[in-house]
């Protein structure tokens, strides 16, 4: 059976430090304003008690990638293992994919005049290395999971700020933070 690779993002562990985002940016020597991974602040009442919480997202390597369907030149392919690959050689920079993606993942690189997105570091995966964001997260909060093999018991497909998963069936799952006990001063 083919693989279904996807990110598993542990929000319980994530400290919102942005190291994933910046190490990716640095490793790929992208035009530096380009971000393939993005850390977003979540509402502070996410778990009931007020906390600082963040979620790190990249391409969700969807089962039904809207980018792929929207691309007029066939620059997108979905690999056997589920990774959605964007071939920049073929890209004409029309930005249709960016408009189609409910997560606004493909972004326009004004210098190259092409779109750009996370590749789940498939070149690294193919030689047995982990994606940069997975390897460089100081808290080990990002994993790659083969969702055909493993169903994380507390994994969920939706968090606030994240688009409705029923549209494109993203593979990314999240582990939500558990509320801790708080003794706050009454005012």
């Amino acid at each position: 059976m083919a693989k279904k690779l996807g990110f598993l993002v542990n929000i319980e562990r994530c400290i919102g430090c942005h190291a994933c985002e910046i190490s990716c940016k640095s490793f790929y020597q992208l035009e530096p304003e380009m971000r393939r991974r993005r850390v977003t602040e979540l509402p502070e009442d996410l778990v009931g008690t007020p906390v600082r919480a963040f979620v790190s997202t990249a391409c969700n390597h969807c089962d039904e990638p809207a980018c792929k369907n929207a691309c007029p030149v066939g620059a997108y392919t979905k690999r056997e293992d589920g990774i959605v690959v964007h071939n920049q050689e073929l890209c004409i920079g029309c930005q249709m994919c960016g408009k189609a993606c409910p997560y606004k993942v493909p972004v326009y690189n004004p210098v190259k005049r092409k779109m750009d997105k996370c590749s789940m570091c498939y070149e690294r995966l193919d030689v047995g290395q982990l994606p940069i964001c997975v390897e460089k997260c100081p808290l080990e909060a990002i994993q790659i999971v083969d969702y055909n093999e493993v169903q994380p018991e507390n994994g969920v497909s939706i968090v606030p700020t994240f688009a409705d998963p029923s549209i494109t069936h993203p593979t990314t799952q999240f582990i939500l933070p558990k509320p801790g006990k708080q003794t706050r001063r009454s005012s």
Partner: peptide
């Protein structure tokens, strides 16, 4: 310099840098 990252021989940092360290090329 094309990439700056943590040294994996160190068991405290385990080959990872904080967000600030990742900006060193810059």
């Amino acid at each position: 310099i094309t990439f700056i990252t943590g040294n994996e021989n160190n068991t405290y940092t385990k080959g990872r840098l904080c967000v600030k360290g990742n900006t060193y090329p810059r």
